[in-house]
């Protein structure tokens, strides 16, 4: 009796130890990022000072009060949110179709959808650029340097992921539920909205969140397909690595600012993450 409870306690202590160490490892780089962001340039090389006691506010104030930077933030917010919304809705529709209809070659379509995420992005920046500047144009208006352009481009790597995630969840919903609702006189749309959507809600939440994070964090396409109006915050971050002073302090501050919204987001929704990430693979 006592020995099992002792073992249980030991297990608990070991678990605690493990997680405390992990937490330290996880937080250390982030803490250091913060410490650097709070230092003026002359203090940077003072590594021995591990505990940050001073706070050099200009690192934060300069970007935050800069109208250009504010525009980057707003762009990032709009692009990430619109993209996540669009991707979630499309993924639900697509996976519903893939899962409930007998479409010719649906497995191949599914695989092709996924391959879209695999391309090394660098070489694809040039075709995208040409498409945006030459093909997608209406008179003077081109898709280059617009937020709608970025929203659509991010679908290329977010949609496959979302479809992958939702497909498993869709497949996991018993077909009998559809049929029961249909017998009760519901049409397809109602089945989707009333029966399917509530059941996929956790998965949908995680799809939305991960798409949002990926879109918020993307750099290469944001850098090469925008110029002034639609720039996002990650490109702003890269701008601080410049001649005459990699502005380490400011760069760290911008990195903190760029991370914060995603962080808050994570804390609010984190309980959905575990519920939604099953890929539907384990069927109950």
């Amino acid at each position: 009796m006592t020995s099992t409870s002792f073992r249980k306690n030991l297990g608990l202590i070991a678990t605690y130890a493990l997680w405390i160490i992990l937490t330290v490892i996880t937080l250390l780089p982030i803490y250091w990022l913060f410490a650097i962001s709070a230092r003026s340039r002359v203090e940077l090389f003072d590594v021995g000072n591990f505990i940050q006691t001073t706070f050099y506010a200009p690192n934060y104030l300069e970007p935050l009060t800069d109208p250009v930077f504010q525009r980057y933030l707003i762009n990032s917010l709009i692009v990430a949110t619109s993209n996540a919304l669009l991707v979630s809705v499309l993924a639900v529709l697509a996976t519903y179709a893939l899962s409930r209809w007998k479409l010719a070659g649906s497995n191949n379509i599914f695989f092709w959808l996924i391959t879209n995420r695999m391309a090394p992005p660098a070489a694809f920046a040039l075709p995208m650029f040409l498409l945006f500047t030459r093909v997608f144009r209406i008179g003077q208006w081109t898709m280059f340097d617009t937020r709608i352009g970025l929203i659509l481009v991010y679908c290329v790597f977010n949609l496959p992921f979302a479809v992958w995630l939702m497909k498993g969840i869709m497949d996991g919903i018993p077909i009998e539920l559809d049929e029961a609702a249909r017998v009760d006189g519901a049409n397809r749309w109602t089945v989707l909205v009333r029966v399917i959507l509530p059941l996929t809600a956790p998965g949908l939440a995680i799809t939305f969140i991960l798409s949002w994070i990926f879109a918020w964090n993307e750099y290469l396409f944001a850098a090469s397909l925008t110029s002034v109006n639609a720039r996002t915050i990650t490109t702003g971050l890269a701008g601080y690595i410049s001649v005459t002073g990699t502005e380490w302090g400011q760069m760290a501050a911008v990195a903190m600012i760029a991370t914060l919204p995603a962080l808050i987001f994570l804390i609010f929704i984190q309980r959905y993450i575990v519920m939604g990430l099953t890929f539907g693979a384990v069927k109950e």
């Binding site: 250009v68 809705v89 709608i148 109602t190 909205v193």
Partner: peptide
């Protein structure tokens, strides 16, 4: 409901592609 969903997407997209609110704030 089924009408609302696509409508929402369209409006989001329109909002996103409309010209930036402030035309290049003069720094």
């Amino acid at each position: 409901l089924p009408l609302l969903v696509p409508l929402m997407i369209v409006s989001m997209i329109l909002a996103a592609c409309s010209a930036p609110a402030a035309p290049a704030p003069t720094a």
